[in-house]
Amino acid sequence: MQRVNMIMAESPGLITICLLGYLLSAECTVFLDHENANKILNRPKRYNSGKLEEFVQGNLERECMEEKCSFEEAREVFENTERTTEFWKQYVDGDQCESNPCLNGGSCKDDINSYECWCPFGFEGKNCELDVTCNIKNGRCEQFCKNSADNKVVCSCTEGYRLAENQKSCEPAVPFPCGRVSVSQTSKLTRAETVFPDVDYVNSTEAETILDNITQSTQSFNDFTRVVGGEDAKPGQFPWQVVLNGKVDAFCGGSIVNEKWIVTAAHCVETGVKITVVAGEHNIEETEHTEQKRNVIRIIPHHNYNAAINKYNHDIALLELDEPLVLNSYVTPICIADKEYTNIFLKFGSGYVSGWGRVFHKGRSALVLQYLRVPLVDRATCLRSTKFTIYNNMFCAGFHEGGRDSCQGDSGGPHVTEVEGTSFLTGIISWGEECAMKGKYGIYTKVSRYVNWIKEKTKLT
């Protein structure tokens, strides 16, 4: 034993070699072989497995989906700052455009905790909710729209109204504003409101030439003092309507412009014939205590009207009353817009006519005020429907199939267009061939041609 100890002390290297040989010859039971080890760690190889990531292109799944990435790591994937920024906006807080917040056709661009709407022409605001041009839906104005110097929408209202708090709607500024039905039992019968379409306001006024200088022999019209197929109006439903009495009662109609003036057809009036105007009328054979009678003290036909040349060209006249009318729910003026808007309103496509005229061709006159909704007829169809001249200051309205029309005794009465609950004068009943005849239409004086003249002559002093 002493000898062994001496050998170990003198030859430590020998001992180490012996131990190493023993270990190498022993069977290893701690580690699995290569094949079995792979069965336990069965993990798919990654895209760049075996390579240094710093030297390969980034992978979106590896960089940002398996674990949260930084902007720089995302930049490695896209290799483009702009594309990385677009991805980053949604990656950080989701897609803010998912709810489609942009209105009126706006395009949404996502941002971090926010979004941006790219608005089409005519709109602005956070969600493109603000109209900035009158060309689109009248700028959301209830009545009139004008573009300011910086191309912003400025709404306005006709006389007797003021802008509401929203700067879009119009509200009454006087007790009985024009064009409004205020009798409670008839307010439910107000005709369907007309909503502004998209309009090209630059070209809204037709490029028409008034044929002022045409000389033409007097034409022989049949029954051209021209509501057939209409309905009984309720008291106060058309408070701007008046009836004219002269040699015979209810020979023509008219509309209240203001307390002192009536507008009617020029062919209705004769110099030297006494005319009485009755406002607030409903049943011409009954006294309903809503009527107001006034005498006409002055007749002003349009300066281009000449019955000797043509009885229905420039067929418009103004009547001055001896005493002002007292405005109330049964006696209310009709609204008159400017030339541009009167023309736009007419193009809405349908209007209402009213009167006490004959209820059928050569038949009896109506006792109760009649009204009828009539569609506008395109000019080409209008011209083809008659052998008589249709001037540019006239328009056609009615039904091709016949059966409904204005008729004798309705002449001078109103053709009105309702705009968001307020009625505007767009025409004056003038003439036609018979009444409600198939293929024939009622012919009306186009008020847009005469609004400046009306307003100039009827100013209240």
Rank of each mutant, 00 (worst) to 15 (best):
F55Y: 11
E281T: 14
S204P: 11
N306Q: 08
N127W: 05
H302P: 02
L14E: 02
N295A: 12
Y47L: 10
F31T: 15
W88M: 15
T81M: 08
V257F: 02
P101T: 04
I316L: 07
G398A: 05
V419T: 04
V195T: 08
G402F: 14
S184L: 15
G349V: 02
G432H: 08
Q216W: 10
V77Y: 10
P235R: 10
L23E: 02
G442T: 14
E98S: 14
L60G: 15
E10F: 13
Y201M: 12
N393A: 05
I136N: 10
L189Q: 07
E142H: 06
C134H: 03
P120V: 05
L372T: 13
T458Q: 02
A279T: 03
S156Y: 11
E456T: 11
L319Y: 02
V353P: 01
L460G: 06
W431A: 06
E116M: 03
K446M: 05
S411G: 12
G412W: 09
C382T: 02
V227G: 15
E86W: 06
G403M: 14
S114H: 08
K347F: 04
I7S: 07
E66N: 08
I136A: 13
F399M: 07
E67D: 10
Y450I: 01
A366G: 11
L321V: 05
V181D: 05
N127K: 07
R384D: 08
Y91I: 11
E159H: 06
T194E: 13
T158W: 02
T186W: 08
R62K: 09
L24W: 09
S385G: 12
A308R: 12
V56I: 11
D378Y: 03
E270D: 14
A192H: 08
V374N: 02
K152I: 08
Y47C: 04
L425M: 03
G402T: 08
K438L: 12
E142L: 04
M437A: 13
P101L: 03
S169K: 08
F251Y: 11
T215W: 05
S365T: 12
G106I: 00
G246V: 05
T389R: 13
V331Q: 00
G357A: 12
R3F: 11
K146C: 04
P333V: 01
L346S: 03
V273E: 14
L372R: 13
P44C: 04
K168C: 06
Q219A: 14
E129N: 04
I275M: 07
T81A: 10
T81K: 14
T225P: 09
G412D: 02
Q57H: 12
T209N: 15
A337N: 00
I390Y: 14
E35G: 12
T85D: 10
E54Y: 07
H303D: 11
N313P: 03
Y341L: 06
F360Q: 08
E54I: 08
N127A: 04
D315M: 01
V92E: 15
K459R: 06
V263I: 11
S70P: 09
K311M: 07
P414T: 10
D410T: 11
Y444I: 07
T218M: 07
M394V: 10
E433K: 07
G236I: 06
P197Q: 12
A366Y: 09
E259P: 09
C155L: 01
Q90M: 09
L41G: 15
L32D: 14
L189E: 13
C119F: 00
R226W: 06
T158L: 08
M394I: 09
V257W: 01
